[in-house]
Design a protein around this nucleic acid. Structure first.
Lengths: 227, 227
DNA sequence: TCAATAGTGTCTTTCAGACAGTATATA
DNA sequence: TATATACTGTCTGAAAGACACTATTGA
């Protein structure tokens, strides 16, 4: 019954973001095979499918991320983005891809180095480097979809905390917002929003101070629900 | 290369909403085949896939909607929702489904009648009837995903206009918001939000008046961008 | 002491919720 | 005339943008 219909190949692709030096970065891998051999592309690959069983889509995304970049599955924030299935998006055959976006804390960036040598993965500046690259397939479109999503979502969901160390200062968090939105925030007004999160219990003060600039700043910790 | 991997079956499923008598309704079809034979399910079906070419995912969604319910593709608002791929979501074989939600203007409801006789399609009250039905597969989860989406999105995007006739009164639009959100809106405050849309040019006054209740109400028309 | 960042407070505008009150149609 | 709905206006509070101001550190 279901076998009357031809089936498409199914992949997952990942738009992996981090922030380094107050700049939004995207993780790309260099393609070893045709088509687009030698081009930079989003990490991703085929979903493991069996007649009965196989892996869930989100598991496939985590697995591909770990395999291709070395980023551990349990420490990366992952969320489904959109599914792309234009008939001509892959020149070989019909390939439908479920795109996810991932947010990587800066502390984890060194872990990608381990895989870098093997898989040729690198972080690129979204604003300054990626536009020149000419990504493989429709990956530019997928990236833009991811950018739109995080730029919209950061205004109402606590995804900013996924791009900052476990403890952080107000300025560091503001830097995340500025890197994502691409605009400057008034430090005083940002701090006020922040203080509301504090009184709402979304954030608590952490011990110690951090001396980044001139005067050491208070350090905070994000309180996820149920911990 | 790509043919080394087994492929999943790929379907689209549709969460189709309308509003009738100030109540949010969902369009369901009765299954004629196993599994879940006789159960109510979301309209949907297999994406047409060929080695080279075939249809786009959104085209597949429009096609299935028209085939199964008679709703014309060019008059229904459609948007991708989420992709579901749990390995056990279909007992037969691995089936991944790309879910869409659709918004149907009340004027189009009679068009579903034509297909009703053939395909056994019916509108159900989301609040009062659907919970008792026990939908096929994971369609309850897909429905909840669609509900979440429109309840969130109506606050910042003009999707409410997709559930109202071409010309409408303030009360009618308020009824849409109340049906979706499941809460009452203060008529005076809602009217103020509405007047801002008017001054912003999102809406224009239409000729005539409509006598629904006691006093005839002014009629408006939504101005989509670029017309 | 100076410069730079941390941090506070104030003014204004915008908008939402609550709610009183006026206007106009039909039964 | 009664009443239900259409429609207007006002008060209050929450929150954002602009911006002046104080505090504390390192160089």
């Amino acid at each position: 019954m279901t076998d009357e219909y031809p089936r498409p190949a199914l992949t997952v692709d990942l738009v992996v973001f981090t922030i380094l030096d107050s700049d939004l970065k995207l993780l790309l891998v260099r393609r070893k095979l045709e088509p687009f051999r030698g081009s930079w592309a989003l990490p991703g690959g085929f979903v493991r499918v069996e007649e009965q069983g196989g892996e869930d889509l989100e598991d496939a995304a985590h697995r591909e991320l770990e395999e291709e970049t070395g980023l551990p599955r349990d420490r990366v924030y992952l969320e489904q983005l959109y599914t792309f299935g234009r008939p001509d998006r892959d020149p070989r055959t019909r390939v439908v891809t479920v795109a996810y976006y991932a947010l990587v804390r800066p502390e984890l960036i060194p872990l990608t180095r381990a895989a870098t040598d093997a898989a040729d993965a690198r972080w690129f500046s979204v604003a300054k480097e990626v536009p020149e690259l000419g990504l493989a397939f429709d990956h530019e479109q997928i990236l833009n979809c991811g950018l739109e999503r995080i730029r919209g979502k950061i205004d109402y969901a606590p995804i900013g905390f996924e791009l900052v160390p476990e403890t952080f200062t107000v300025s560091e968090l503001r830097g995340v917002y500025e890197a994502i939105k691409g605009t400057a925030y008034d430090p005083a007004n940002f701090r006020r929003r922040f203080r509301r999160m504090l009184t709402d219990g979304v954030i608590v003060q952490a011990p110690g101070k951090r001396a980044t600039g001139r005067r050491p700043a208070t350090v905070y910790r994000f309180v996820q629900r149920g911990s």
